[in-house]
Amino acid sequence: MKQYTYFPGCAMASTGKPIQASIDAVCKVLDIELKELEDWTCCGCPGESINELSATAIATRNLALAEKFQLDMVTACSCCYRNLLAAHVTYTEDPRIREQVKKALAATDLEYKGTLRVRNLVDIFVNDIGLDVIASKVQRKLNGMKVANYYGCHQTRPYGPDDFEFPVWQDQVTEALGAETVFFPLKAQCCGGTQLFSNKEMIYKLLYKILDNVEEHGGKCISSTLCPLCFTNLDANQGRIKNRDGKKFDMPVLALTQLMGIAFGLSPKDVGLNKNISPALKAVRPYLKSTAQEVLK
């Protein structure tokens, strides 16, 4: 049993519900215990572009809360991951910012010592659990499934530790599940995030580029990063973007953990697949009958 402090982030309770369901289910199979951080608040990411210092200070509040437990803090949302890690890095490396953040935190009775390790859930899967363990839990091999792994920005940029331009960890996980991975150059291009509200045309063009690139390289479904923003942008907006033939995109989008759950023999409902807006079930249906019990049913 591996234990971590878990920082879900605001979006996991709303648009990220299917991802959260699959994370819970998959972590149970992999014997990972995620202890939700008590009284966590927003990571600070939403205010980052307008006021850097206040975003850092709010993130540091969460870091200070988590530090007490002396466990690594794991988050699945890429935005939370980047902002919490950025706060940790600037706090420990920039004395000027540290003093200012300390002053701001004096408004509460918290203090951050700078000893916490902030990590991404995919990092845990690959480096702490191991690909061989993941492969050993597979009950439905996803043979012949052509999966395009989409990483988004903040899972790897700017802090890594996976590659900035062509990350590989998600590909390694999906290969361990028996699926075939498809390389496409825009695997770490931006989905546009929250600007979907204010600059729709721009975001639709970014999403078009990603979806078109997946189709062009032969991807039959997208295994998305665990970030609720990337996932929802790709999942919910396909009906409003036209592909090269002038038709609407119809690409199944699954979060990485949903795909893992299906391969581990869990039911689609267990991993929240019934809540996906894109035709995600279509991609996994051929594999659902491959365990003995299901054939008997």
Binding site: C10, D39, N51, L53, S54, A57, I58, R61, K103, T108
Partner: peptide
């Protein structure tokens, strides 16, 4: 969403402190 009063108050206090400093 589920949220505690204390968390919100602390965040507001932190943001106010930063703005005052600036």
């Amino acid at each position: 969403p589920k949220r505690t009063k204390k968390g919100g108050q602390e965040v507001t206090a932190i943001m106010k402190a930063v703005e005052a400093m600036q």
